[in-house]
Amino acid sequence: MRAGLRRIGFALGVLAGLAACETSQLAPRETGVPPHARPDGLKPVPSAEAPPRRRSLASKDLETYYSRVQADLLTQGLLRTDGGGPDTPFTDTMLVRNFERIALAEEYERGAGLRPSRGELSRVKKWLQPVRVTIEFGALVPEDQRVPDTNMVTQYVNRLSRITGHPMSMNADNANFHVLFMSEDDKAEIAPRIRQLVPNVSPSALELFDRLPRSIHCLVLAFSEDPGGYAYGEAIAVIRSEHPDLLRRSCIHEEMAQGMGLGNDSPSARPSIFNDDDEFALLTTHDEMLLKILYDPRISPGMDADTVRPVVTQIAGALLGGES
């Protein structure tokens, strides 16, 4: 979950009774006498169509705010898009450590909204079933943004599939990974839509959207196939449409990668988007290796740190040629 200058990752039935209208016995059901034309002054006035919704001042102000945030970060040399280089070396030992902090630890307590976790290592979380991605736009997301955003998500899905070797595709008919681009004016639609997609979603997860501060740039909710399980069956990423292009693309990269199982951040991870320092905007070579490790067939959902560590160490060594 990207948050401000740092990154952070769930009836009542109403019946209306209709009174029966019986035909009066004082007038015939049918008559051969044609009715008189109704005088013009008595004709019902057609109801005026509701004016189209327009973006609010709050949404425009948010757009200005995020543009300034992006400009400030770029001025500081942050939001790099080079994927890392000679100035950001890392070893297989560092990769193993970062995998444990990013893939095994959880940023927030399960079912507790934005309450930070205590940092304990949990278990491996990943997809076993194919990932089918679809995109939805809020009603007030600008039309000229929709095609570029769709292209960005489609290209990134293809990239994630190549990196992980896991089947991923764009599929609107049977989707299990929903990417929602929503403006401030569409905010009231988010919780109901999530409830439609995941009917048993935790109320604490939905509460996030009732008080979503502007410091939260985007977020992802991932749900296990079975209650309390670790194999994902559904994910929903929510991205603010008011972001300028690079921040919006950065949100796509981070939230979708987190929705694949890299759910936490670490201040020691570099070069990485899974770091609160915003140095990198897009998935790096380091992050690609984390995904390769996670989706290695030797690693299964639910494995704990002690069980998975020897396997991760072996894979990381192979990826980096045995550096330590």
Rank of each mutant, 00 (worst) to 15 (best):
G321M: 03
I190A: 08
A16I: 09
Y66K: 01
P142F: 02
G317M: 04
E30R: 13
L79V: 08
L219R: 06
V311S: 02
A105N: 03
P297V: 03
A305M: 06
S324L: 12
M1S: 14
P271H: 11
K125E: 08
S300A: 12
V179L: 00
L104S: 01
T31Y: 06
F280M: 12
L114S: 15
I135Y: 10
D210Y: 06
A281V: 03
R80W: 03
E279Y: 11
R101Y: 09
C251R: 04
P167Q: 08
E30P: 04
I239C: 05
H217M: 13
M170I: 15
G138T: 09
L197D: 07
A191W: 04
P116C: 04
S272K: 01
R38F: 08
L212G: 06
E225T: 11
L140N: 10
S215Q: 09
R101M: 08
A281Q: 01
D186Y: 04
R249S: 12
I236Y: 09
G113F: 13
M152L: 13
R123E: 13
R298V: 03
G322T: 07
H166T: 05
R249P: 05
L74E: 15
S183L: 03
L247E: 07
A48N: 00
A222S: 15
A16S: 06
G263C: 04
F137W: 08
V14R: 09
F90H: 06
P227C: 04
P116E: 13
